[in-house]
Structure formats: structure tokens, C-alpha cells
Design a protein around this nucleic acid. Structure first.
Length: 531
RNA sequence: CGCGGGGUGGAGCAGUGGUAGCUCGUCAGGCUCAUAACCUGAAGGUCGUAAGUUCAAAUCUUGCCCCCGCUACCA
């Protein structure tokens, strides 16, 4: 059925601003992307998964100054620290893009020149309320009626400077048409919000250069101008594919018409990815992504966004050390409803890990394999067609959950995908209770004992395969304990029921130790309240 | 009337016309293979509020109250 050509899939995360440390809010988006990337890979896609860092701008220049470092040295350090987090989080990105990469800089300059030549960029005046001591422009809303600087509270004055603008007005109608023709481009409520708030009142041309600082990409045509964040950061998605470079084979491969392109963005940067980025692509006569998936943000209980500047977001490291990376990944993927804001709370964290991972998945692995040890000296019984109705029903139910899992995952609803996998595992607990293998053993009903433990072995194998994208290491651990051969660990092998008989299982150890609720809540609360 | 999302048992959510459901928590029972786990059952909701449409509304209409996000060059 499948075409001979391998399907390609390009997935990107936001690139994070290199001004501080990564916190769990950032890790959330990358976990979502990683789960999707891993899922696509096991479904046979040729995947390119990219993340990176945005390393230019005034703020970074200031930060570097404070740290008494050259900006480049400063961002080198930050980028390195980001990569370390992604390594610790098991983020399987294929490429890490930095906006200070030579190739990126070259691409941005070429794009600027191209757009200037074709008339989509022009030189104009940028106007706004200017605070001289802060060297910053502010909007009407920011300065308020008093016309005071929102940072230092001193008076601001109306000021203008030369700046280049991107002619976005010209593309507004094209964009609206695109939205209409591609209802899956982005969630409809977000699109409506964008249309009503920004497009309908009339889009203003976007100011894309600054002269007030110089840590950025200087344009060849007028080097006192540096490219401001929009054009610089957004282009990462294609500069990293070699757009306009001598070697653009990746661009052809992953930004071609046949590629499925998924871009993850946080809700806070929706506008740039749903309005300006598509316009930029249209101006460059390039295709648009298939979908911009807006993920929610992690917020505190009172609804405040977790952020670097507020300092209210824990680092992922203590969580990884204490609970293991897979637990954190699972929690983020499962607890946060994708697309909705989610709230990191100690109670929910502990409850979720105990309920799903320790009590359900981990415990089922343990109890199933323990029985195989106890009753069959660690050898999985041979398969035969199920005789007992309960076993028949179990296999039917497994199939049903599997279908739901696929549906949800194909829609990138990883929250419900994880849920379906967990429900599949949970079938095993009810099945055991109904069959009561321990009773069958006492009654010497060996056939049913064998049938039930074989069924459980398959259930664990399938469940572990489904959970692989979420928990790449613990699922391997589970499959190792069951000693499943590599050939039966692939997604495609899920349908190969009946091949586990005769396997001598491995050494058992609890996958996820049950957490002591009070202790862990205290630990987590202290962590959030500031170390 | 700026735009949009939302108010469902203790917590988090599903549910777009026809006996109000899920997960966690709580309580009671069961089981003993397992990580004090697992299974079963129970308690607990007038579905923000007021009115309307309908044989029938959490679900449609309208008013009101409350929470949240966005409101433009702040990543």
C-alpha cells in the first residue's frame, strides 16, 4: 500500500532565546516535539527534527556586558548549556540551529537583499515613544497616559529613526485566502484571534531592522542597521536547511511539496508564526508549513506564566535526577493537555507518576513477569489460540486501544495517545483479576495459566512499544526484563502475535519505584518556592 | 459594546438535545501474583447565574457575574 518513496517529516521547535537557563516550560515544548518525532520515526517516516537558539538582540548584548563577556562567547556558553539540557532530556533532535551560525547569517543577508531587490523591503521611519536612558522604544499602551517609561518610569518622548520595513500589507489577502484553503494550518480559534486582532484592523508593515544596538546581523546594504529579531529568528527554520546556500539538498528534501512540515510554537509566539512567517515565506515564494501546532504554556497555580524573567520556573535537572528523565517526559506529555496551558503542581506530579507509571505500568510488568518466574521458571509459555472468553476479549480490547492510540498520535494529540497506551496496559490488571492465574495454578489448570501469562506478555510488549516515544529508556528496560528480541520491538511487529513462547525472561527490577507522596511534595514545593 | 477561550462532584478534565462520565483523591469490601500494588463497590455535582426555545438542555438563544489569554514590534 505504501508508496515506494519514503515519506519525509520536518518538525521544528521554537528556538529559545539565549539569555538564561532552560526551565521546565521550555522542556515541555521540546518533549512534545520529541515524542512526535520519535513516533513518526517508528511509523517509517524519514524525520528531521530541529531545535536551536536565538542568540541576537539587545537583551543578550546587555547580559553579556553584565557578565563581562563578548556577546559571542556568552551565547556560545548558553547554547552549550541548552544542548546539555536536551541531552539530559533525551531530545532526539537531528540538528541544532544557532542564529549566530555563519550559514544562518549568510542566509539572512541573502534573504534581506532578495526582498529589498524585489521591493518587499523598503527604508522608512520607525516611530515611537523613546526613553533616552533606557535606549528603548515603547508603544502607546506601554507608556500609558502619563508617558512614562515602563522600565525606569522617567518621561519618554516621541522619536523616530530610520528603519527597514517588510511590506506585509501586500500579502494580507493572500494570507486570508491561505487560511481558508488550509483549515488544518492552525487551530481555528487561534486563526480567528489573529484575523480579528491583527489582520482585520489592518496589518502594519513590520519594522525589521534597528540602529540602536549592534549585536545582530548587519545588512550589507547599510551596515549601521542590524536585522531585528523577526526576520532573523524566523528564518532559522530554512537557513538550517541550506536555503539560498550552495548546498540546498536538505531544503529540497524537507521543504518540498511532499514533505509534511509541523512547527511547534508556544502560545506566546503564535502571531509571528501564523502571520509574519507565512508572509515571509510567500514573499520568498516558498511553501508554507502544513501545520503550526500551538502548545500551551506551563503556568503557576494562579495562572502566571513560568518564565525566566519571573524566576518562578524550576530547572529540569533536579527533577531528572530525582525522578528520572522518562518520568518527567511522561508527566509533561500526559498531564498537560496539548494546546492548553498546564499547571505544574507537586501533588499532580506525584499522583500522576505513582498512578500511571509505578502502579499501572511498572507494577504490571513486575507482577506478570514474576508469575512467569514462579510458575514457569522464567520461560514464557507457548502461544495458542485463546480459548477463554476473557482472553479473547482482552485481545479485542487491546486492538481497540491500539486503534485509538494511532488515531490520536496521528493527530499529534500525544496527551490522549499516552492515555490510550496507559489504558491498554491497565487492561492487564483487570484481566488478571478476572482470570486469577494464581488460582488456576492452585487448581492445576495449567492451560489457562499458560494462556493468561502469554496474553500478559503480549500486552506488556505492545504497551511498551506504544510508550517508547514517551519514555525511550524505561520502555527498553521493560522489554529487556521481558527479554523481547529486537525484531519484536518495532511498531510494525505489534501485529506479530504469538512469537514470544519459549523466551527466557531477564532479571526483574521495579521500573518506577512508588513515590512517597508527602516527602516528594515537600521536595517539589521547596524546589518551586526557590531552592 | 475591542477580540478570543473558559466557568461540570475535593482536584484536574470529557461530554454540542434524550437516564451526568473519566482520572486522581476519600471511604468500605475483595484478592494475594505484584512496587502497602491490583480488583469491586460507595459517598460526593440543582453542569457560574437568570430567563427563553423544546415533549426533552450541561448541550440551542438572550441578559448578567466571574476567571484567563491577546490587543502589535516585549521571545
Amino acid at each position: 500500500m505504501d508508496s515506494k518513496k519514503t515519506k519525509t517529516f520536518y518538525i521544528t521547535t521554537p528556538i529559545y532565546y539565549a539569555s538564561g537557563n532552560i526551565h521546565i516550560g521550555h522542556t515541555y515544548a521540546n518533549v512534545v516535539a520529541d515524542v512526535i518525532a520519535r513516533y513518526k520515526r517508528i511509523r517509517g517516516y524519514q524525520v528531521r527534527f530541529m531545535t536551536g537558539s536565538d542568540e541576537h538582540g539587545e537583551k543578550i548584548q546587555k547580559k553579556a556586558l553584565e557578565a563581562k563577556m563578548e556577546p559571542k562567547a556568552y551565547v556560545d556558553k548558553i547554547a552549550q548549556s541548552f544542548k546539555e539540557v536536551w541531552k539530559a532530556m533525551n531530545i532526539s533532535y537531528d540538528y541544532y540551529v544557532r542564529t549566530t551560525d555563519e550559514s544562518h547569517i549568510a542566509c539572512v543577508k541573502k534573504v534581506f537583499t532578495k526582498l529589498l531587490e524585489q521591493g518587499d523591503i523598503y527604508l522608512g521611519k520607525y516611530e515611537g515613544w523613546y526613553c533616552t536612558p533606557c535606549e528603548s522604544f515603547f508603544t502607546d499602551a506601554q507608556v500609558g497616559e502619563e508617558h512614562l517609561c515602563p522600565d525606569c518610569h522617567r518621561p519618554v518622548h516621541w522619536e523616530q529613526e530610520d528603519a527597514y520595513f517588510l511590506n506585509v500589507k501586500k500579502y494580507a489577502s493572500d494570507l486570508l485566502e491561505f487560511y481558508q484553503q488550509h483549515p488544518n494550518f492552525c487551530r481555528q480559534d487561534k486563526i480567528n484571534e489573529m484575523i480579528n486582532t491583527f489582520i482585520k484592523p489592518g496589518l502594519d508593515d513590520l519594522c525589521i531592522t534597528r540602529t540602536s544596538f549592534d549585536w545582530g546581523i548587519k545588512i550589507d546594504e547599510n551596515p549601521k542597521h542590524v536585522v531585528y529579531v523577526w526576520i532573523d529568528a524566523l528564518l532559522n527554520y530554512i537557513s538550517a536547511l541550506g536555503y539560498l546556500s550552495d548546498d540546498d539538498h536538505l531544503m529540497k528534501e524537507y521543504w518540498g511539496e511532499d514533505t509534511e512540515i509541523l512547527q511547534l510554537v508556544g502560545r506566546d509566539i503564535t502571531r509571528f508564526h501564523v502571520i509574519y512567517w507565512p508572509i515571509l515565506l510567500k514573499a520568498l515564494n516558498l511553501r508554507l508549513p502544513d501545520q503550526v501546532l500551538v502548545t500551551g504554556l506551563l503556568v503557576t497555580k494562579s495562572g502566571v506564566k513560568l518564565s525566566k524573567s519571573l524566576g518562578n520556573a524550576p530547572s529540569p535537572y533536579p527533577l531528572i535526577e530525582r525522578y528520572g528523565v522518562d518520568s518527567l517526559r511522561y508527566y509533561l506529555a500526559r498531564e498537560m493537555q496539548i494546546g492548553e496551558d498546564g499547571c505544574f503542581t507537586p501533588t499532580q506530579f506525584v499522583d500522576r507518576l505513582n498512578a500511571d507509571l509505578a502502579n499501572n505500568y511498572g507494577n504490571l510488568v513486575n507482577r506478570s513477569l514474576s508469575m512467569i518466574n514462579r510458575y514457569f521458571d522464567g520461560v514464557i509459555p507457548e502461544y495458542h489460540e485463546p480459548i477463554d472468553d476473557l482472553t479473547k476479549k482482552l485481545f479485542a480490547d487491546v486492538k481497540e486501544k491500539l486503534t485509538i492510540y494511532e488515531e490520536k498520535m496521528n493527530d499529534f494529540d500525544i496527551t490522549m495517545g499516552a492515555n490510550a497506551a496507559m489504558e491498554l496496559i491497565d487492561l492487564g490488571n483487570k484481566y488478571f483479576d478476572n482470570i486469577a492465574p494464581w488460582t488456576q495454578a492452585k487448581n492445576n489448570n495449567i492451560d489457562l495459566l499458560k494462556e493468561s501469562l502469554y496474553a500478559a506478555s503480549e500486552l506488556l510488549r505492545i504497551g511498551s512499544i506504544l510508550l517508547k516515544p514517551f519514555m525511550p529508556t524505561k520502555t527498553i528496560d521493560a522489554l529487556d526484563q521481558e527479554n523481547v528480541p529486537d525484531s519484536l520491538r518495532t511498531f510494525d511487529s505489534i501485529k506479530d502475535i504469538g512469537k514470544l513462547g519459549g523466551i527466557h525472561i531477564g532479571t526483574l527490577s521495579p521500573l518506577f519505584p512508588r513515590l512517597k507522596k508527602d516527602e516528594e511534595i515537600k521536595f517539589l514545593t521547596d524546589l518551586i518556592d526557590g531552592k
